[in-house]
Amino acid sequence: MKVIEVENLTKKFGSFTAVDNISFSVEKGEIFGFLGANGAGKTTAMRMLCGLLSPTSGKGVVAGYDILHDSEKVKASIGYMSQKFALYEDLKVWENIRLYAGIYGVSEKETRERTQLLLAELGFEKERNSLVKSLPLGWRQKLAFSVSIFHNPSIVFLDEPTGGVDPVTRRQFWEMIYQASERGITVFVTTHYMDEAEYCNRVSIMVDGRIDALDSPASLRKEFGAADMDEVFRKLARKSKNNGL
């Protein structure tokens, strides 16, 4: 079953084409890595898939809904977290959970029961009443991820979720991603850590608004004759006309 289907999706800002005719699909439960250099068009593409930005042309269906005509239904069916903003720092841990659960329409009773369960799973029971700003970054990111999938979305978008996180927590975070994927949640993730690209089932690499490569990490390494994903990335990004500008 396909959870994301994109055909010839394009976004132009004036004369600048940020996303240039991209087509791809993502299967249910897949961990899909969405890579590209700064300015390659990742954020613009992701905003369109989340129903936050209308495409200039082309078509996209996310979680069964058209991103142009049913963008509100798209928003209700997905989860989202980013490195920059995920939780309200001046709310307590349980208040953040309740807020997001409420926004996504999870009943109060279910929220109460599952909050206990979630905090136990994370080993955060003692932090239930702590303000989020008092938590270490790694804990915050783990909590933010749990909150982003609390309403059981069919797909979760993660925008650089592990930036600046310590190496142990970064790996624990990926183990949480695997668990979500085993539960059938599709994971769409961007990262600048090339070792994390290896943890994805498939990876796409954007260059100047296009998707220039899309395959499993092992196949991409083979295709580009590269030792690791870092080398694949460098070989592709070198083709860019923008040169990181």
Binding site: A37, N38, E160, H192, R234
Partner: peptide, 11 residues
Amino acid sequence: TTGIDPVSRKE
């Protein structure tokens, strides 16, 4: 180099 892609980081 935070938030900067691997190629720009090398540069």
